[in-house]
Design a protein around this nucleic acid. Structure first.
Length: 595
RNA sequence: GGUCCGGUAGUUCAGUUUGGUUAGAACGCUAGCCUGUCACGCUAGAGGUCGAGGGUUCGAGUCCCUUCCGGAUCGCCA
């Protein structure tokens, strides 16, 4: 027996009541968060997205409303009319923003009854993620998720305001596009009008935004969905949102970075109330890798990597000697003051580096009572001293070593320093660590396919003086690319693009595309380059990740209203699903049942 | 594709090491009492395919095999 409003108008949202409203008439609407029936008086916490206000039903003052209120259960949807009154000094609830007042209800409408929800709708929810995703509309009623949705909306509106003010034009680009096998796996959409052909959902609006520069759009931005059919992680969803930016008449990285810094400043100020420096510090890629083992370093703590290859090259310890002879490296982390780590804890760290391909984790623990190290017996006294000196080891420290090819050493030690910092609480969560990483390599070598691939994407411009390396020394070439890293997370990245037809074609050839490949995949793009291309560049920010950082959440699902689970399924709607035979027939698609 | 962890009441978990009477707790739910609660309180009660299938056994939540589902993670993510 759902009741109707019948002209009843809400006067205020639940979270907006304060002592200023005392004595005023009020009409409120919302969900029942909690009810407390004391026999002849009942209190109801009414919740909407702004907060909670306490309703009071008194059998003495309004017996009709009181008697009706005894039917109330959690999550019922109510409309209630009454008068705001003070709670009285003893009954103020300081935990509640509206805790100084309550509304004495004269008239109650039960707009909708509700079954007992499958889990408690409270902020410190205990239910599993799967259950909460299945009933996402209930999960979203939780105040903490409502706050995140609101913060996200603020990011969107602040971005639109700021970029518009700066002269950027909002342009929408298509979702149904052309598949480009370079990069991530595409989500494909079968075409009905062209049986056996497929659209691809965009991994990013990259090509369109560059074509918009060729269109004379000059400065473009868009808040756009992107799709990548790759395996998921805690900070990765198959569809995610990007703040996509591109501008014309730039060929130095500083120009785009300045605009990007302006936007990031604005977002941090508007959404988190945090002022960040006008000029964000920069770190070159090579230095980031060398010092932190990562191109998205978290620099809120030390534990930097130290190259000891030259120190240990004739150490007499076979693992070190063999590695250095084969052109690999040996690097160390000096974990200050952690010689107290137990064998079990060290074993756990060993597992961390193993996951990244390291064969083992050597260590030297400098305890007050002497050196403890499984490798000490392979080293003579002088060598041991030399190694310890090289990493600045003192009593109380433990030094970890990984010997392997560079990529493994950096990955393993990069992960190790994060693991140690997290376990030992070395990270100051109260500060935002924001930096640019620049001077990325233009190419990297794909071991699996035995060919060069673009580190960023094949439209990224090399440094002007490195154009000459494209053919002869490609791995030496550095790019006009930049990533914005916040708290060790890649928050955004971009580049100055190639605007020369000649360089663009050399780039395609360098990554192994034949003339035919280039024409089939990027023919329209290359053709556009014939008709005048302003030098241009841009950047894209992961909006979901920005909202995570700004709201302090570590799960991307919390910042997306209806996210997918780890298998890229929607637990609520049960997408993806099978489709009708006639739908398949129209698309001329046959399902191969064999596994 | 690999590795690790998990699945027991509506929910979160204990119980599995060492097979043995009627599978427990908390929260939630239902009913009664209660006029100042806000984690309201008190009393009583309902609630279980121990993920599914098979096997071993006199006997399986517990042991074995198969399988499904979920999470973390490596690869992957231009």
């Amino acid at each position: 027996m759902a009741e109707f409003l019948n002209g009843l108008n809400r006067t205020k949202m639940c979270g907006e009541f304060s002592a200023k409203d005392i004595g005023k008439k009020a009409v409120v609407m919302g969900f029942v968060a909690k009810y407390r029936n004391l026999g002849m008086i009942q209190f109801v916490d009414l919740r909407d997205r702004t907060g909670i206000v306490q309703l009071c039903f008194s059998s003495e003052e309004f017996p009709g409303a009181f008697s009706k209120s005894t039917q109330i259960r959690n999550e019922f949807v109510l409309a209630a009319k009454g008068r705001v009154r003070p709670r009285g000094e003893k009954n103020i609830n300081p935990a509640l923003a509206t805790g100084e007042v309550e509304i004495l209800i004269e008239e109650l409408k039960i707009l909708s009854e509700a079954e007992t929800p499958p889990f408690n709708i409270v902020d410190d929810v205990k239910a599993s993620e799967q259950l909460r995703l299945k009933y996402r509309y209930l999960d979203l009623r939780r105040p903490s998720l409502q706050r995140i949705l609101a913060a996200r909306a603020q990011v969107v509106s602040a971005t639109i305001n700021y970029m518009t003010k700066k002269g950027y034009l909002y342009v929408e680009t298509p979702f149904l596009g052309k598949s480009t096998p370079e990069g991530a796996r595409d989500y494909l959409v079968p075409s009905r009008t062209f049986p056996s052909k497929f659209y691809a959902l965009p991994q990013s609006p990259q090509l369109y935004k560059q074509l918009l520069m060729i269109s004379g759009c000059d400065k473009y931005f868009q808040i756009s969905k992107c799709f990548r059919d790759e395996d998921l992680r805690a900070n990765r969803q198959p569809e995610f949102t990007q703040i996509d930016i591109e501008k014309s008449y730039v060929d130095s990285i500083d120009d785009v970075m300045k605009d990007a810094e302006g936007l990031i400043r604005e977002l941090f100020k508007k959404v988190a109330g945090v002022t960040i420096p006008r000029k964000i510090r920069r770190l070159k890629y090579a230095e980031a890798i060398e010092r932190f083992g990562s191109d998205k370093p978290d620099t809120r703590f030390g534990l930097e990597l130290i190259d000891v290859t030259n120190v240990v090259k004739d150490s007499g310890f076979a693992v070190f000697d063999n590695s250095t002879k084969r052109g690999m490296s040996v690097r160390a982390i000096n974990a200050k003051g952690l010689s107290c780590l137990t064998r079990k804890e060290i074993d756990a760290y060993q597992e961390v580096v193993r996951e990244y391909g390291a064969k083992g984790l050597a260590y030297i623990s400098i305890k007050p009572e002497g050196i403890s190290s499984p490798i000490a017996k392979f080293l003579n006294e002088a060598m041991l001293k030399e190694i310890i000196a090289a990493v600045g080891g003192e009593t109380g420290d433990i030094i970890f070593f990984v010997a392997d090819k560079n990529s493994v050493v950096f990955d393993a030690l990069g992960a190790l320093r994060l693991a140690i910092a997290k376990k030992e609480n070395l990270i100051d969560e109260s500060v935002y660590d924001i930096l640019w990483v620049t001077h990325f390599p233009l190419f990297e070598f794909d071991e699996e396919e035995k060919r060069l691939t673009a580190k960023h994407h094949p439209f990224t411009s090399p440094l002007n003086e490195h154009i000459k390396y494209i053919e002869k020394r490609p791995l030496k070439a550095r790019a006009k690319a930049y990533d914005l890293v916040i708290n060790g997370q890649e928050a955004g990245g971009g580049s100055i693009r190639i605007h020369s037809r000649d360089v663009q074609e050399r780039m395609f050839r360098a990554i192994g595309l034949s003339e035919k490949d280039i024409n089939e995949r990027f023919g329209f793009f290359v053709e556009a380059f014939r008709y005048g291309v302003p030098p241009h560049g841009g950047i894209a920010f992961g909006l979901d990740r920005l909202v995570m950082i700004l709201t302090g959440t570590d799960n991307i699902k919390d910042v997306i209203a209806f996210p997918k689970n780890q298998n890229a399924a929607c637990v609520m709607t049960e997408a993806p699903s099978e489709v009708e035979d006639n739908q398949l027939a129209e698309l001329k698609i046959k399902i191969d049942d064999q596994k």
